[in-house]
Design a binder for these strands. Structure first.
Length: 119
RNA sequence: GAGAGUAUCUGAACAAUCACGUAUAAGCAAUUAUAUGAGGAAAGUCCGGACACCUAAGGGCAGAACGACGGAUAACAUCCGCCUGGGGCGACCCAAGGACAAGUGCCGCAGAAAAGUAAACAACCGUAUAAACGGUUCAGGUGCAACGGUAGUGUAAAAGACUACAGGGGAUAUCGUAAGAUAUCUGCCGGGUAAACUCCGUUCGGGUGCAAGAUUGAAUAAAAGGUUAAGGUGACCCGCCGUCUUUUGAAAAUCGCAAAGAACUGCAAGGUAACUUUCAGUCAAGACAGAUGAUUGUUUUAAAACAGAAUCCGGCUUACGGGAUACUCUCUUUU
RNA sequence: GCCUCUGUAGCUCAGCUGGAUAGAGCGCCUCCGUCCUAAGGAGGGCGUCGCACGUUCGAGUCGUGUCAGGGGUA
């Protein structure tokens, strides 16, 4: 789990991020990027969405969410990708093929999508 | 040794690094330290409650649920014991298991006839060719089912008309708290269906469900309508409430709610058992974009099954890996 | 979390209340028709009535359980 300051909580923030339609996607997931940061002080806020349509069982959905969270956590800790600090909010939405993916697939997918994103 | 039956248990452990929820302590604070953090089904939401609110919540009647008998329980459609019926060689398992002899409905096709003490056609017997009349429905045939069954007596031919055997119903006696069991007597023999309407008995019978609801925000708040019959409650009726009714009242926070109860664990006593009681001990997840994770190593043969708490309890049902334990049954072999 | 509804042919539905032939429209296939196609005409159904168990002589229909899908409620 991410620390409190890195979580996206407000319903209005979700709506705002979705409306921008600033998307990067592959066959495992789909990432929505929010507005550009005006000041560099505030932390980036993340959210993770796994729909009930992807899998029926809650255990599988929780597993995907936790793997995505862990990947983001490691990125923030190592500060490996500078690109990520440009945005106010990031939402990761899983796709149905992510059911069979392991941690390394999800991790590489997230790293590729974020680092290749150009403003 | 093999194959079965019943009941119960288990549902990986340890270490390292990084991270999250909650509580406590320290600190102005950032934060740090310590403790602790999913299940046997947390699931389905199928029953039963606790609890909360709705001005008022009373009576009747619809209605709903249950259905052998006795008990357990806060309650239940649950559980225990037992009876009856059915299945299995057996251990054992299964059962919505009241009433069709109160009334009504339904029973296709076939068949004389599907419930009406019933023969139109048909068949058998007699008067003795036939016709007609009288007796009968035994046999034959239909159908899931034919107004009781099998064998005999009897008769022109037949019929519980009579006898024996087994079955059902009823009565009496004994045993059992009871369902019921056993014995004797009795020609009484009335088709099936109530998971058809219905009747009988028992229980419930105002509704909504924690997104219930309370407080802060938030203030003798604002606007509209109504004026003694509109409105509210309610499936419906009676009744009741009644000067008020309706609408708006944001985001957010605290409580409800995580601490303590129909709680869990253990011993003892009572009881066939479910369960109850006394005593001792324990406090053990709790959010609101929603915690319990990731990687690596070691161990066991392998870490793999079903599956993720959302107000809380008691059940039921369904899903499920590899094992372990106890008792019991049948068959085979050896002594 | 709570409350509800629906599963029948490839698709959309009826039949279910009230038990005894599984049907309608569209689509599909074959033939006729036409130089060819379309329209039109004739014929054709292959469905475990979501699944399982029960009640009944007999179940798409009645009862119970279960699975899947949809809708409502802040």
């Amino acid at each position: 789990m991410l620390s409190q300051q890195n979580r996206l909580k407000k319903y209005s923030a979700f709506i705002a991020t979705y409306k921008l339609k600033n998307i990067a996607a592959d066959n495992i997931m789909c990432i929505y990027f929010g507005k550009e940061k005006t000041s560099s002080d505030a932390a980036v806020k993340f959210a993770f969405v796994v729909s009930k349509k992807i899998h029926k069982r809650a255990v599988v959905r929780n597993r995907i969410k936790r793997l995505m969270r862990e990947s983001i956590r490691l990125i923030l800790k190592e500060n490996s990708i500078q690109n990520i600090n440009n945005y106010m909010s990031v939402i990761c939405v899983a796709k149905p093929s992510s059911v069979n993916a392991d941690f390394y697939q999800i991790d590489s997918s997230i790293k590729r999508l974020i680092s290749s994103k150009v403003l």
